[in-house]
Design a binder for these strands. Structure first.
Lengths: 175, 175
DNA sequence: CCGAACATGTAACCTGTTACATGATTAC
DNA sequence: GTAATCATGTAACAGGTTACATGTTCGG
């Protein structure tokens, strides 16, 4: 269990964002936020989030309150040092501009090799799946504040881009 | 070292794509392709690629030739079974439509909280970084064939989307 | 001849996943 | 009361990273 003396992992950053954002939360709520997140980047498993929280505490970036109530709930809050580190993390343009792991893109080359009939069936399927995700967005963003909706907006843009790509491909753009 | 009886990991899929695509390659070339890839998804480290290749061979999806020449180069080729598995992997709409880990999106919420002056400085920086990536694309795609350029096209679209988002944000769209 | 690129491989480590164990509270 | 939700935690595992170790070939 190394304390994050180097730069924060994406999960650690996301945890700090969540805590900063909520002001006060619990480990459970952070996990649930990841579980319910539109993107299935992380499972929000206790086995990932709890160790990450302990690492952040060990590095002095997160304060963990004493267990309260019968459930032993522990309040999390970000420390000034944590805020500073988070900002530094967020301002790293090199990292922020990385093209992440995109399952859609990785597979797209293979789709292009499919015979027309199979491809158009698949593309219909992909369109339906994407539109279902789009339809979920308003509900999902409902009780989030403006800051969180910024990220949701990018998810929205990404889904729209995928739909446009699917349409554009079939209209022979391809290049 | 489990053989991939379950579904392929993204890396395993990407390795098979690379081998299918090149017809014949070596582990070294696969690694280099990942290292040079526009997206820094994977480091292309020997410690990841070699075990993945062995897993794929153990599962009968990849054939590894005997060491040839003084360098002991081993030719890789995809088996019919591997092609079938790869297709199955690529047609999984649920997985393909996942919103991946996007460092840009994860940070965007924080950027929105920055004071105007700091934000506009950062956004300039992000624009420059993104435009530099865009500028690299033609060179990068030069000696790739049409199929590979499909994925490059999506990288292109993603970068354009980010630029549009940066501009749109500063023009007060924000929602 | 030396350094860069080609080529493979292993060991130690970090981090995330699944799957479980435990218990309290709330809603029906 | 019992099922769902809240709340925390650990153990075993899988997969990727860094960092090495080893040797070949080619260009200057």
């Amino acid at each position: 269990m190394k304390s994050p003396t180097g730069s924060l992992t994406e999960l650690e950053g996301a945890v700090l964002v969540e805590v900063l954002h909520r002001g006060m939360t619990t480990a459970f709520k952070v996990r649930r936020a990841f579980q319910q997140s539109m993107s299935s980047e992380w499972s929000g498993s206790a086995g990932a989030v709890n160790p990450a929280i302990r690492r952040l505490e060990a590095a002095g970036l997160l304060a963990i309150g004493a267990p309260e109530g019968a459930r032993g709930t522990r309040q999390l809050s970000i420390t000034p040092s944590g805020e500073a580190r988070l900002q530094e993390w967020s301002l790293d343009a090199e990292r922020a501009c990385n093209i992440g792991i995109d399952p859609f893109r990785i597979r797209a080359g293979l789709w292009a090799m499919l015979p027309e009939s199979r491809r158009s069936a698949l593309f219909d399927n992909l369109r339906r799946t994407t539109e279902a995700q789009l339809a979920r967005l308003p509900t999902y963003g409902k009780d989030r504040d403006a800051t969180e909706r910024v990220a949701i907006g990018i998810v929205h843009d990404t889904l729209i881009m995928r739909l446009a790509w699917l349409d554009g491909f079939e209209n022979g753009r391809k290049a």
